[in-house]
Design a protein around this nucleic acid. Structure first.
Lengths: 236, 236
DNA sequence: CTTGTTTTTTGATCCATATCAAAATATAGA
DNA sequence: TCTATATTTTGATATGGATCAAAAAACAAG
């Protein structure tokens, strides 16, 4: 971790509506801004926090891309999510005051930090912020249950289609192309997240390519047939 | 839904420390009590709420046993959890103000209801309550990620062992036997939760029986070798 | 650019779990 | 109680994805 530190400025942030300040008035954002710790750079491959670290702060991804993963005692790891701009890291640690996963930057990234004690104080001051934060936590629960559905009852092709469609949606909400994806993670990361082996991920990407659903060139994926992918997810 | 209604009384509740009032002072519990809506009976097989229902209230399981399940459009269903006394139902609905799963009683049960608007007001009054509730939401995130680990990287025997050990732990926290389990759910429910088919669940239970890990008689399961199960989970 | 390392692709084979089927058992309703 | 229905067990077989293996491609460091 580390590094260059700049004052966070939610007020001027382009993704403010996708992040903690969502739905707050300008005055409220100002107050939040005053309590944000600082902005940190996290280099590709570095971790923002590791399993077992004491929990002090939440982090909002400002730019870049992260993965979170749990490590099972026997070495097995499970990727539990990928986070992009505006998404919050550290929510799982509130429960025990310890981080229960590793958060690793998959490209050079920046995060905005806010100490959780401060944040809870702010929540008492701004019922609006607290209300939104309740929703943020709940949204994470919904997301996780979506992954449970995926892992528990979808076949490999459906899982991968759902994964790609989800990524595309999140990119396009951020005004980035919703069809030209640059995958920041390895096939192994994708496989871990989807409960598949990396070879299976690779094979299915090739198959989707053959079926003209995608144009795959390494980590550059272009979605050619969004409809086709959606049909797959429904379990045709 | 519904049914006989009694005033909730957290103050005198035996599982108060496992439920929303956990960690509150007597005065605070009294205040919470005043805002609880009422106690409701839910008969076996009935649902407390269904997917799509408007979200108004959280429910704390008072007695009994529930399952929650998401239904995929094409009919497939995924059981996302089993809830027992003290556990909170409805957390996922905060995010969208709509329930995104069905909550069905697996035995005659009772729940304590609190409208979420009221609850949020209370949270503003009692920072302690809000703090605990943040932890409750976070704990649900941790639980869900545990299920992701289970579905994503454990083999069928490990999943079932983890499931049984988890159930046993939760029963024993409630002063019930941690070795004599009465499964309230069908093999199919267990299978859905664990991403397995009901036949697989049945076969593994039989295998555990043969290996003297369990004594299985229909839905009555006695854990004979807790250690053995734990060893399985570690992935021997 | 070159070299070593990591990641990705593709093929051949295997196996854990699904599927199909049918009997046995348990549960609920009359 | 008896009867109908739902659940569970067990067997036989099939299959989706894992595993093992090796070449190809991409990437990072000097």
């Amino acid at each position: 971790m580390d590094f260059s530190e700049l004052k966070s400025v939610c007020g001027g942030c382009t993704i403010r509506e996708l992040c903690l300040p969502a739905g707050l008035s300008d005055e409220e954002v100002l107050l939040l801004d005053q309590h944000m710790a600082h902005r940190q750079v996290v280099k590709k491959g570095d971790s923002l926090y590791r399993t077992g670290d004491a929990f002090r702060s939440l982090f909002a991804v400002s730019t870049g891309f992260f993965k979170t993963s749990i490590l099972h005692e026997d070495g097995r790891a499970q990727v539990t999510g990928f986070q992009m701009a505006g998404e919050i890291l550290g929510l799982d640690a509130i429960s025990t005051d310890q981080h229960i996963c590793d958060a690793v930057a998959l490209e050079d990234s920046a995060v905005c930090e806010i100490t959780f004690d401060r944040f809870e104080e702010l929540g008492q001051l701004m019922s609006n912020l607290q209300h939104r934060f309740n929703k943020t936590l709940s949204r994470e629960i919904v997301r996780d249950q979506g992954v449970m559905l995926l892992l528990g009852s979808m076949r490999s092709e459906e899982r991968l289609a759902a994964f790609l469609v989800n990524l595309a949606k999140r990119f396009s909400m951020r005004k980035q192309s919703g069809s030209e994806l640059v995958l920041r993670m390895t096939r192994e990361d994708i496989g871990s997240y989807l409960g598949l082996k990396l070879e299976t991920v690779s094979r299915i990407l090739s198959r989707f390519h053959d079926q003209q659903l995608l144009d795959v060139k390494g980590r550059n994926v272009r979605i050619l047939d969004q409809q086709g992918l959606n049909k797959l997810i429904e379990g045709s």
